[in-house]
Computed example of a mutant assay.
Amino acid sequence: MAYRETEKMRQRKAEARQRIVDCTFQCVMDGGFRSARINRIADLAGVATGTIYRHFESREDLFAGVFRLATQREVDKVAEALATEGNAAARLETALRQFAERALRGPMMAWSLIAEPVDPKVEEERLKYRKAYASLFETAIREGISEGCLPDQDARQSSTCLVGAIAESLVGPLSPTQPARIRRQHLTTPMHWSIPSFAFACRD
Protein backbone atom coordinates (compact mmCIF):
# COMPACT_ATOMS: atom_id res chain seq x y z
CA MET A 1 0.00 0.00 0.00
CA ALA A 2 1.45 3.33 -1.06
CA TYR A 3 2.30 5.83 1.66
CA ARG A 4 -0.16 8.71 1.84
CA GLU A 5 0.82 11.86 3.67
CA THR A 6 -1.77 12.91 6.24
CA GLU A 7 -3.02 16.44 6.75
CA LYS A 8 -1.29 16.49 10.13
CA MET A 9 2.03 15.59 8.51
CA ARG A 10 1.59 18.29 5.87
CA GLN A 11 0.86 20.82 8.58
CA ARG A 12 3.95 19.80 10.55
CA LYS A 13 6.10 20.14 7.44
CA ALA A 14 4.64 23.56 6.68
CA GLU A 15 5.30 24.69 10.26
CA ALA A 16 8.89 23.44 10.11
CA ARG A 17 9.47 25.25 6.82
CA GLN A 18 8.05 28.45 8.26
CA ARG A 19 10.29 28.18 11.34
CA ILE A 20 13.30 27.76 9.08
CA VAL A 21 12.35 30.86 7.09
CA ASP A 22 11.62 32.88 10.22
CA CYS A 23 14.90 31.92 11.87
CA THR A 24 16.87 32.66 8.71
CA PHE A 25 15.14 36.04 8.51
CA GLN A 26 16.14 36.74 12.13
CA CYS A 27 19.75 35.72 11.49
CA VAL A 28 19.94 38.10 8.53
CA MET A 29 18.35 40.88 10.54
CA ASP A 30 20.90 40.37 13.32
CA GLY A 31 24.05 39.97 11.28
CA GLY A 32 23.41 39.79 7.56
CA PHE A 33 23.47 36.80 5.26
CA ARG A 34 27.04 36.07 6.35
CA SER A 35 25.78 35.23 9.84
CA ALA A 36 23.01 32.94 8.61
CA ARG A 37 24.85 29.64 8.88
CA ILE A 38 22.87 26.47 8.31
CA ASN A 39 23.88 24.94 11.66
CA ARG A 40 22.75 28.06 13.50
CA ILE A 41 19.47 28.23 11.60
CA ALA A 42 18.79 24.56 12.34
CA ASP A 43 19.46 25.08 16.05
CA LEU A 44 17.18 28.11 16.22
CA ALA A 45 14.43 26.36 14.26
CA GLY A 46 14.72 23.18 16.32
CA VAL A 47 15.33 20.95 13.31
CA ALA A 48 18.17 18.85 11.93
CA THR A 49 20.32 20.38 9.19
CA GLY A 50 19.07 17.67 6.84
CA THR A 51 15.52 18.88 7.39
CA ILE A 52 16.47 22.27 5.94
CA TYR A 53 17.64 20.60 2.75
CA ARG A 54 14.40 18.65 2.49
CA HIS A 55 12.57 21.98 2.28
CA PHE A 56 15.13 23.92 0.24
CA GLU A 57 17.36 22.64 -2.53
CA SER A 58 20.36 24.57 -1.23
CA ARG A 59 21.54 27.28 1.12
CA GLU A 60 21.33 29.73 -1.77
CA ASP A 61 17.73 28.70 -2.45
CA LEU A 62 16.82 29.38 1.19
CA PHE A 63 18.57 32.76 1.15
CA ALA A 64 16.90 33.75 -2.12
CA GLY A 65 13.50 32.95 -0.62
CA VAL A 66 14.21 35.03 2.48
CA PHE A 67 15.50 37.87 0.30
CA ARG A 68 12.27 37.79 -1.75
CA LEU A 69 10.18 37.87 1.41
CA ALA A 70 12.07 40.78 2.98
CA THR A 71 12.31 42.85 -0.18
CA GLN A 72 8.69 42.35 -1.18
CA ARG A 73 7.68 43.91 2.14
CA GLU A 74 9.71 47.01 1.26
CA VAL A 75 8.36 47.15 -2.30
CA ASP A 76 4.83 46.97 -0.89
CA LYS A 77 5.59 49.89 1.46
CA VAL A 78 6.86 51.99 -1.43
CA ALA A 79 3.74 51.10 -3.44
CA GLU A 80 1.57 52.17 -0.50
CA ALA A 81 3.38 55.50 -0.23
CA LEU A 82 2.99 56.11 -3.96
CA ALA A 83 -0.75 55.45 -3.65
CA THR A 84 -1.32 58.24 -1.09
CA GLU A 85 -2.92 61.59 -1.84
CA GLY A 86 -1.04 64.47 -3.44
CA ASN A 87 0.65 65.08 -6.74
CA ALA A 88 3.24 62.68 -8.12
CA ALA A 89 6.24 64.72 -6.93
CA ALA A 90 4.93 64.78 -3.36
CA ARG A 91 4.17 61.05 -3.43
CA LEU A 92 7.65 60.26 -4.76
CA GLU A 93 9.22 62.29 -1.97
CA THR A 94 7.07 60.48 0.59
CA ALA A 95 8.03 57.08 -0.82
CA LEU A 96 11.74 57.85 -0.87
CA ARG A 97 11.70 59.29 2.63
CA GLN A 98 9.84 56.26 3.94
CA PHE A 99 12.25 53.91 2.18
CA ALA A 100 15.26 55.65 3.72
CA GLU A 101 13.79 55.90 7.20
CA ARG A 102 12.75 52.24 7.25
CA ALA A 103 16.27 51.30 6.11
CA LEU A 104 17.90 53.34 8.87
CA ARG A 105 15.62 51.82 11.50
CA GLY A 106 16.69 48.32 10.44
CA PRO A 107 20.23 48.94 9.18
CA MET A 108 21.51 45.37 9.11
CA MET A 109 18.58 43.99 7.15
CA ALA A 110 18.63 47.00 4.83
CA TRP A 111 22.38 46.59 4.26
CA SER A 112 21.83 42.92 3.46
CA LEU A 113 19.12 43.75 0.92
CA ILE A 114 20.90 46.69 -0.69
CA ALA A 115 24.63 46.15 -0.62
CA GLU A 116 25.91 43.04 1.18
CA PRO A 117 27.94 40.75 -1.12
CA VAL A 118 25.69 37.76 -1.73
CA ASP A 119 25.51 34.53 -3.71
CA PRO A 120 24.63 34.82 -7.42
CA LYS A 121 21.13 33.43 -6.84
CA VAL A 122 20.41 36.15 -4.27
CA GLU A 123 21.98 38.80 -6.49
CA GLU A 124 19.52 37.79 -9.22
CA GLU A 125 16.68 38.50 -6.79
CA ARG A 126 18.25 41.85 -5.90
CA LEU A 127 18.25 42.86 -9.57
CA LYS A 128 14.61 41.77 -9.97
CA TYR A 129 13.52 43.92 -7.06
CA ARG A 130 15.51 46.91 -8.23
CA LYS A 131 13.47 46.61 -11.40
CA ALA A 132 10.30 46.41 -9.30
CA TYR A 133 11.19 49.66 -7.53
CA ALA A 134 12.11 51.29 -10.82
CA SER A 135 8.77 50.26 -12.33
CA LEU A 136 6.88 51.91 -9.46
CA PHE A 137 8.94 55.09 -9.74
CA GLU A 138 8.56 55.12 -13.54
CA THR A 139 4.77 55.06 -13.22
CA ALA A 140 4.86 57.90 -10.70
CA ILE A 141 7.20 59.98 -12.88
CA ARG A 142 4.93 59.50 -15.91
CA GLU A 143 2.01 60.63 -13.78
CA GLY A 144 4.02 63.65 -12.68
CA ILE A 145 4.76 64.57 -16.28
CA SER A 146 1.05 64.31 -17.12
CA GLU A 147 0.15 66.42 -14.08
CA GLY A 148 2.73 69.04 -14.97
CA CYS A 149 4.53 68.81 -11.62
CA LEU A 150 7.56 67.11 -13.20
CA PRO A 151 9.32 68.19 -16.41
CA ASP A 152 9.14 66.09 -19.55
CA GLN A 153 11.85 63.41 -19.45
CA ASP A 154 12.67 59.77 -20.08
CA ALA A 155 10.69 58.29 -17.19
CA ARG A 156 12.32 54.89 -17.46
CA GLN A 157 15.83 56.30 -17.35
CA SER A 158 14.97 58.64 -14.49
CA SER A 159 13.40 55.85 -12.43
CA THR A 160 16.48 53.66 -12.87
CA CYS A 161 18.69 56.57 -11.80
CA LEU A 162 16.45 57.16 -8.80
CA VAL A 163 16.79 53.57 -7.59
CA GLY A 164 20.56 53.74 -7.96
CA ALA A 165 20.79 57.13 -6.25
CA ILE A 166 18.88 56.17 -3.12
CA ALA A 167 20.70 52.85 -2.80
CA GLU A 168 24.08 54.55 -3.16
CA SER A 169 23.17 57.30 -0.69
CA LEU A 170 22.33 54.67 1.96
CA VAL A 171 25.38 52.44 1.57
CA GLY A 172 27.54 54.58 3.84
CA PRO A 173 25.02 55.08 6.67
CA LEU A 174 23.99 51.41 6.59
CA SER A 175 27.48 49.91 6.46
CA PRO A 176 28.19 47.54 9.39
CA THR A 177 31.48 49.42 9.86
CA GLN A 178 29.59 52.63 10.51
CA PRO A 179 29.50 53.50 14.24
CA ALA A 180 26.04 53.09 15.77
CA ARG A 181 26.00 56.72 16.89
CA ILE A 182 26.40 57.86 13.27
CA ARG A 183 23.51 55.64 12.16
CA ARG A 184 21.37 57.10 14.96
CA GLN A 185 22.32 60.58 13.78
CA HIS A 186 21.16 59.77 10.25
CA LEU A 187 17.89 58.43 11.65
CA THR A 188 17.18 61.57 13.70
CA THR A 189 18.17 63.96 10.90
CA PRO A 190 15.20 64.85 8.67
CA MET A 191 15.48 63.41 5.18
CA HIS A 192 15.16 65.96 2.39
CA TRP A 193 14.53 64.76 -1.15
CA SER A 194 13.99 67.14 -4.02
CA ILE A 195 12.26 65.08 -6.67
CA PRO A 196 11.52 67.92 -9.10
CA SER A 197 15.19 68.97 -9.05
CA PHE A 198 16.35 65.39 -9.49
CA ALA A 199 13.93 64.79 -12.32
CA PHE A 200 14.95 68.02 -14.02
CA ALA A 201 18.57 66.91 -13.87
CA CYS A 202 17.63 63.63 -15.55
CA ARG A 203 15.66 65.14 -18.39
CA ASP A 204 16.80 64.65 -21.99
Rank of each mutant, 00 (worst) to 15 (best):
A64L: 03
A79V: 02
A70H: 01
D76L: 06
G86W: 15
K77Q: 12
K77A: 10
Q72P: 05
T84P: 06
E101K: 11
Q98A: 06
E80P: 07
T94C: 13
R102I: 08
L96P: 06
K77H: 11
A100M: 09
M109S: 02
A70W: 01
T71W: 13
L104M: 14
R59E: 06
F99G: 02
L96G: 14
K77D: 14
A83L: 12
E93Q: 13
L69W: 14
M109T: 10
V78K: 02
G106E: 12
E60I: 00
R102K: 11
S58W: 02
A88G: 04
T94A: 13
L96K: 07
R91A: 05
P107Y: 01
F67N: 13
A70F: 01
A64Y: 03
E93L: 04
T84I: 05
L92R: 12
L104V: 03
D61V: 13
A88C: 04
E93I: 04
S58A: 11
E60L: 01
A83W: 07
F99K: 09
E85M: 15
R59A: 01
A89K: 11
R59S: 04
A100S: 14
R91C: 09
L82M: 03
E101V: 15
L92P: 15
G86S: 09
R59I: 00
R97Q: 07
K77Y: 07
T94V: 05
E101F: 13
A103V: 04
E80T: 12
Q72D: 12
Q98M: 12
Q98W: 05
L96M: 12
T84S: 09
G65T: 04
Q72M: 15
A64I: 06
A89Q: 06
Q98G: 09
F99V: 04
T84G: 11
A100E: 15
A89H: 13
D76G: 08
H55C: 04
A83S: 10
R97W: 02
P107H: 02
L92G: 11
L69N: 07
Q72G: 06
A70N: 03
G86E: 09
A90K: 14
F99W: 13
A89R: 14
A81N: 04
M108Q: 03
F63G: 00
R102Q: 12
D61R: 09
A70K: 06
E57I: 08
R97A: 14
F63K: 00
R91M: 04
E74R: 10
E93M: 09
E57V: 09
E57P: 03
L96A: 08
E93D: 07
H55G: 01
G106L: 14
F67Y: 15
N87H: 07
F63M: 11
G65A: 03
R91F: 08
A103P: 02
P107D: 00
L62A: 05
A95R: 00
Q72I: 04
F63C: 10
G65I: 02
G86A: 13
E74G: 00
E101M: 13
A79N: 03
A79P: 02
A95C: 00
S58G: 03
M109H: 01
R97S: 08
Q72V: 08
V66I: 14
K77E: 05
T94R: 06
H55T: 00
